[in-house]
Nucleic acid binder design. Structure first.
Lengths: 183, 183
DNA sequence: ACGTTTTATGCAACTAGTTGCACAACGAGG
DNA sequence: CCTCGTTGTGCAACTAGTTGCATAAAACGT
C-alpha cells in the first residue's frame, strides 16, 4: 500500500507527468522505493479515479502527449493519514544472505565472484549518495524539511556502508576458508 | 525465485514436514527470509512434482497426518546451481523511510510514536539475535559451516544495530524540531 | 518528404506473496 | 462419548510488482 503514497509525496514536491515521475523514482525517491513506469501509470489512473489527484488542465490529453498531475486536498489528507498511521515493520528478504546460508550446505563454489560484484555495486551506490549529500545538504541550510530529508539520505548512506563492510568482511573470511566443496 | 531454494536449504539441514518448516522459517531462516505455511505447502508440492524432493516413505499420507520431505540429488544440484549463479541486488523498499520523507511534506504529526515503537521492536530483535549468537557461536567451534552461518547472523545483528541507531538519531532530531505541521 | 530514434503513455499476462477460510485427525476434560 | 482446542495440511481469492509488448507523437537527420 505504499506506491500510491510515494507518488503523492513526489507530486506534492512537484507536479509531474508519468514519465517525469518515473525519472524521479530512479533518482531521489528511488533510494528507498522503486517503481517501473507501468506501475506508475496504473497507479496514476487509480489515484485520479479516487479523486486524490487530477490532471493539470493546461495540456491536451492525446496519446503521446505529456499529461501532468497535481495533488488535490483529498490526496494530501490521505497521505497525512497514511504517514501518521502505525505500521508493522515487514521482515527482510535477502536472497544474497540466503545464498550465503545455502553455500554452507552445498559449497561456496561460484558465490565469491558475485560477492565481489555486489561489493563494487554497493561502493558505487555509496559514492553516489555521498555525492548527493555534499551537493544537497551543505552545512548551512537546515529547515525542518531539510533535516528530515537528510535523515532519510543518511539511512541510505549508512545502509550502503553496512553492506560494503559486511561484504568486505565476508570476502576476508573466504580467503581463510579451506577451499570450498559441499558439506 | 528464492523461496524454493530457502526450503531446499532448510530440508538439507534437516528433513521436515510442512509445519516444522514453517516453525523454522519463523526462527533461524526467518531472519532473512520469511514465509507463511501456505506458501510453504504450495512450494513443497511444486518441488515434489519437479523431482527435487520426496516425501519420506515411512509416514502415511492422510490429511491431518504429518508428511516429511527430504531433498533428492536433483534438488541439491539445483540449489548448488542457484547459489553459484550471479544475481543483481534488488532495490530496497522501506515504507518507514517513505513515511519519513512524506512527513517532510505533510507534517510529522503521529509518526513519532511509531518510530518509538519500531525502535523498541528492533531492540528486541537485536537482543534475540545476540542471544542466539552467544548460544550457537561460542568462541571455540569454527568449522567452515559455522563461520558462514555466523557471518549471516552477523548481518542480521549489524542491520538491527543500524536501525536502532538510526531511529535513535531520528528521534533526537525530532526533539529539536520546531513543532511539526505541514509545509 | 521520409525513415529512424526518442519521448510518452498504456494494456495484458505473469510471478510472488498475503489473507481468509476449510477440513481432518488427535488429545484432554466434562 | 462428545465437544473443544490444537496440530497439521491445504484451496481460493486477492494484492503488489514485473515483463513484454503496442501505440502515438515529436524531433532529427538526409
Amino acid at each position: 500500500m505504499s506506491l500510491p503514497h510515494a507518488i503523492l509525496t513526489a507530486l506534492l514536491e512537484k507536479p509531474s507527468s508519468g514519465l517525469e515521475l518515473t525519472r524521479r523514482f530512479d533518482r531521489s525517491i528511488g533510494y528507498f522505493w522503486s517503481a517501473t513506469h507501468q506501475q506508475i501509470y496504473r497507479e496514476l489512473g487509480k489515484l485520479e479515479a479516487e479523486g486524490h489527484i487530477r490532471a493539470l488542465p493546461s495540456e491536451q490529453p492525446a496519446r503521446g502527449q505529456k499529461k501532468s498531475y497535481e495533488v488535490l486536498p483529498a490526496g494530501r489528507a490521505e497521505l497525512a493519514r497514511w504517514t501518521a498511521a502505525s505500521q508493522d515493520p515487514k521482515p527482510h528478504r535477502d536472497p544474497l544472505l540466503l545464498r550465503m546460508r545455502a553455500s554452507a550446505v552445498v559449497g561456496t563454489d561460484g558465490i565469491e565472484a558475485d560477492l565481489r560484484r555486489h561489493l563494487a555495486l554497493h561502493r558505487e551506490q555509496l559514492a553516489e549518495y555521498e555525492e548527493i549529500e555534499k551537493r544537497d545538504f551543505p552545512p548551512g541550510r537546515d529547515t525542518p524539511q531539510d533535516r528530515l530529508r537528510h535523515l532519510v539520505l543518511r539511512a541510505g548512506i549508512d545502509l550502503e556502508t553496512f553492506w560494503t563492510q559486511w561484504l568486505t568482511h565476508a570476502l576476508e573470511e573466504f580467503g581463510e576458508l579451506p577451499d570450498t566443496g559441499p558439506a
